[in-house]
Design a protein around this nucleic acid. Structure first.
Lengths: 328, 328
DNA sequence: CTGAAAGCGCTTACAG
DNA sequence: CTGAAAGCGCTTACAG
């Protein structure tokens, strides 16, 4: 690969001049000289080496994204938002899957530091524990998080609580009185907030909270399927709020196998509004979250953080209840 | 951030010695000295700078992945496979979305060169045109592709043709004689191969190929929905092969709205076996592709390529017809 | 076993 | 307007 030296030699100028041309520097360069350099660059198919530049400038135009799993459509959509915004600003992203495991989170944070990323966006899982915080020490002024975290980073958040309350209110308005909940896993603040929203709606309507109507899944359709099966065999709710769409897909399948008509005998609400939900039969009623925009906003925030621009340290997105065929 | 110099100063040794300890070099280091260095590293929370190392060693332990769109579950699954295998080998991946646009492909290939990635995995879209090939020039010995391409790179391929033939044979065996096809877009070799498979099955059974039974979508559920609507309103096939699951979801929705029972009045087959397909009603009959394993295999191949190990330049994966409720 | 020094490919303050 | 030189943080051949 041709380097700056090769270009300088061929154009018969110094590397300083080549650098100025390449970077369209303020520093004046004679037009004739510039042309010579441009010609040499073209002929040699020269590209500046970003490692060398990054080492010197202490700026790599690279960011890290830490998520549980890119093959989860929720994160995939957020990531696409982050990347589109990053691309517009000239940043490249390195994506790290942690499956929510502390050990992997810590290891990948260290990796990002070694690779000298300019900043980090953290979504999913949870930042806690001495190890994780300690690994973030050197990076902590350059982190943006998506979701609610114990630590005080600039954050893009979603009104999960309000969304869940609204969804349950919708079920109550339809006349449901035994409303089950397939919640997300322990340790997820998103899951916790959605569950709180469910409880709030019950309380606001003077309805008792019954722990036996609540099951905790792991976001997968399988877990929704199994837990809905348990609820239908036991407590027999007439409606179920699922903490995400995937689990709602599983719940609808369980209802089908139990020969319960959705929505007539069992109403089901999901959360997120993943793309395929509206193709289901019945189309899934769900709480929409603007995942793509969340990603864009998180990257926007990181760009401001890194450039020293002032910005709001907290951006809250509202949800929107989409009433479709799985509730009536 | 502490650098190697800081560690050397604190441990009262030279940077050469620190380097040897950090890299667990062959070169002997006195155990007492080693301990001093380790202690300093710990106290300073030192991490070696990968930019400096990469610049010197001409090896960054970073790879690039070029795909159309990470929020497409097909690519997300392949990427997860690539990343898991990459992670095991100590590589980090930079993912670039091109939406299949030549301009973006070219731009991102140049970006990957600037960032000095060790290698590239290219999936989706298509490598052709002077611009793209030219941009790949410097990287061409370090590229692995997924899918069929005009250019001769080491490749991981899928028997799309055989899978489609098998799926259509299944429909024929069920007695269907008017079989429609919602194919993928022009310019996609995957789409072309699946369409050829469809035609082959017809030919093998002495059935005529009718162009009016074939429509070309763009892989999205919307396109499947619209095109299935056209087929149902016009040619009235009794079965449709869709070139991917997303379009099959759309087709089933169109059938529902046209009050055609699936599978009784319209049989539908998808392709890929994305995770949600089996939760549909009816569960989607589809041609399974081992997406995750394809990703793993592609990364494995790239690792061998980069390390100079001998390996098969072509790895072919077979598909598997999964018969579910959308065909009977 | 230890360290001084060269060099990877850049940018920029400084001198001319 | 142009260029020589320092320095970013590393690894390793070489000398001792």
């Amino acid at each position: 690969m041709a380097n700056i030296q090769d270009v300088a030699l061929r154009a018969k100028v110094s590397i300083a001049t080549v650098s100025r041309v390449v970077n369209q520097s303020e520093h004046k360069v004679n037009p004739v000289t510039r042309e010579k350099v441009l010609k040499a660059i073209q002929e040699l198919d020269y590209r500046p080496n970003a490692l060398a530049k990054g080492l010197l400038m202490k700026k790599t135009m690279t960011i890290g994204i830490i998520i549980p799993n890119i093959s989860n459509p929720y994160y995939a959509e957020i990531v696409r938002g982050i990347q589109d915004e990053a691309d517009r600003a000239g940043y490249t992203a390195m994506i790290h899957n942690t499956d929510g495991k502390q050990e992997r989170i810590v290891r990948h944070i260290y990796l990002l530091r070694e690779k000298s990323v300019d900043g980090v966006i953290f979504s999913g899982g949870i930042i806690n524990g001495y190890e994780t915080l300690s690994s973030l020490r050197e990076l902590k002024e350059r982190v943006v998080v998506v979701g609610r975290h114990a630590v005080d980073f600039p954050a893009v958040m979603v009104d999960n609580m309000g969304g869940a309350t609204q969804a349950v209110q919708h079920l109550i308005d339809l006349g449901h009185r035994r409303i089950g909940c397939i919640a997300g896993p322990e340790g997820s603040t998103t899951a916790a907030d959605r569950l709180t929203g469910y409880r709030n709606a019950l309380a606001q309507n003077g309805m008792a909270f019954k722990p036996q109507l609540v099951k905790r899944g792991n976001w997968s359709p399988e877990s929704g399927y199994l837990l809905a099966g348990e609820l239908l065999a036991g407590e027999q709710p007439t409606a179920i709020l699922c903490a995400n769409d995937q689990m709602a897909f599983g719940a609808i399948k369980a209802a089908r196998e139990a020969e319960k008509n959705v929505p007539r005998e069992l109403a089901v609400v999901g959360f997120d509004n993943v793309p395929t939900g509206s193709y289901f039969d019945p189309p899934l009623t769900t709480v929409e979250i603007p995942m793509y925009e969340i990603g864009v906003a998180a990257m926007r925030m990181l760009i401001n953080l890194l450039s020293g621009e002032p910005f709001d340290k907290l951006r809250l997105f509202n949800t929107k209840l989409l009433i479709k065929g799985s509730t009536t």
